[in-house]
Design a protein around this nucleic acid. Sequence first.
DNA 1: AACCAGGCTGCGC
DNA 2: GCGCAGCATGGT
Length: 302
Amino acid sequence: MSDDRLLRIPLPQQFSFAECTWFLNRNYDDCMHTISDTEIKKAIVVNNATFLLRITEQNNHLEIEILQGDTSARSKNAITAYITEWFDLGRDIEPFYKLLRKNKSLAYMCDDFNGLRLLSIPDLFEALCWSVIGQQINLTFAYKLKRRLVARYGTKLFFEEQDYHIFPAHEILAAANKEDLMAMQFSEKKTEYIIGIAKAFSAGVLNKEVIAALPDISAKQKALTDMKGIGTWTANYVLMKTMRVQESIPHGDIGLLQALQQHKIIKERTETDKIDRFFKKYKGWESYLVFYFWRSLAVRNG
DNA sequence: AACCAGGCTGCGC
DNA sequence: GCGCAGCATGGT
């Protein structure tokens, strides 16, 4: 492999590639990347061009191999920015660990999940579609639905006998038929929401820049929840996963509630005041804490 | 086989 | 502003 296809991104303190890849994999079947023990392969779009990347960890840096796509300096910069955002490489998470260590029932996370970063979904349209898909259905089924959507409407790159999928463009889903989605076992509501969101993107009234330009979290939440199919959970989920608003909490999230019960922070899922008071101790790290709670739910097999 | 799932909308109060 | 039924469909 010629060197001009390689990119190296230095790693911050408190980063674990193994923890991040393990979380990406968990026990689910995500069609947006391929993971083995030591590498991630993923197709991405930056600057309106597609790239297939192989990501590995070397000494103190991530090594990105551009398996497909051009290797101009401009592209490399965009890929570096994408990876940095995806793995949240720019953040010092030691202050978060300091807060965790103050709580006896959470301190173990600093060791057990050490170096886990809040993995993002850089594309807002994908994040919103994924949220709608995941609403009120189990994750196993949700990943199945996503796979069907991506296979039917997305594009893909081919490399060494394998497909690498790129999430459908909003233009494509804006023009999709309800009946086709429903034939893939999307509920009628989910098809309406997804097509509606796709149309808003195509009209240019909703995108990452629009949300980023809003002054505070409540303005961002309102802009999102004004869309049909986006409630408080979805708004906060994408603020956390895509916009990296550190204080967003996906209120009502069933996984979060489960974890709060398991850590004996609440007894009943209705104790919202208690939850609010608890999170006040983690100001600025709320979304990280939620992410670590999700991590705590997933069990390693062996 | 009943109960649950990374919720949301629309309605009644 | 708050509570709640109805939704829609696979997993466990």
